[in-house]
Amino acid sequence: MLALDKVGKTYPNGVHALERFTAQIPQGEIVAIIGGSGCGKSTLLRAVAGLDRASTGSIRIDNIDINAPHEKIGIIFQEPRLLPWLSVADNIGFGLSELPVAARREKVAQALARVGLSDKAKAWPRELSGGQAQRVAIARALVPQPEVLLLDEPFSALDAFTRRDLQDHLLDLWADTRPTLILVTHDVDEAVVLADRVLVMRPRPGRLFAEIDVGLARPRDRASPLFDAVKRRVLTALDRSLDRDVPDSAPAETVGAWW
């Protein structure tokens, strides 16, 4: 269980980026976070990852306070951030340096096969396409088997087709060990395809605005009317989150009742 309790962040320059963000995320849940630009999504994710410290509130995973990077938490950024001086295989094995060589090699080989890049094991990162590089980044974050995987707009730099491919891929990989996924995205479609629950944030200061349970069976059919309905609910919530005239206390379900 990942428990965020009134998490707030004020940057040294005075920007109030996040305020009293509270959420309980049970192990294995997929949560999508969506919201306008600058509403503190990355700030929240970096705090959960332990890369930045929250100014107020607490982040706990299984009752352990998080204020530095933790082995149970992995993160995938918008860019692949592969180490250019390591081969693809060594990049994937980067977090496994404590394992003996043989065990590491086996895990890496498995991960490579799992993301469909076995033939690229010896390639340099510069020789990969954007989508391939992001797959390597996913494999690198997943091989240490984190309990929580954070993804900050991981597919936003990719074309629509590759994005869909990687979304399916991510779900496949998720099914292996079922970590908690927290996915920041700008793509409503992506949120509804992947998530069990969508959290909508609003800006200035960044805070939680609405919570939408997706409640669709997997695998999800992007063309079904139910899928469309959920999408519309998210879109409406998103619209209202950006409207200054809507009070904060608007209960999430009034949003849902709109259609």
């Binding site: 332990g50 890369l51 950024f77 180490l83 240490p144």
Partner: peptide
């Protein structure tokens, strides 16, 4: 910094 952060996330 982005590459250094990769090192940090792997502690």
């Amino acid at each position: 910094r982005k590459i250094v952060e990769v090192g940090r996330t792997f502690r």
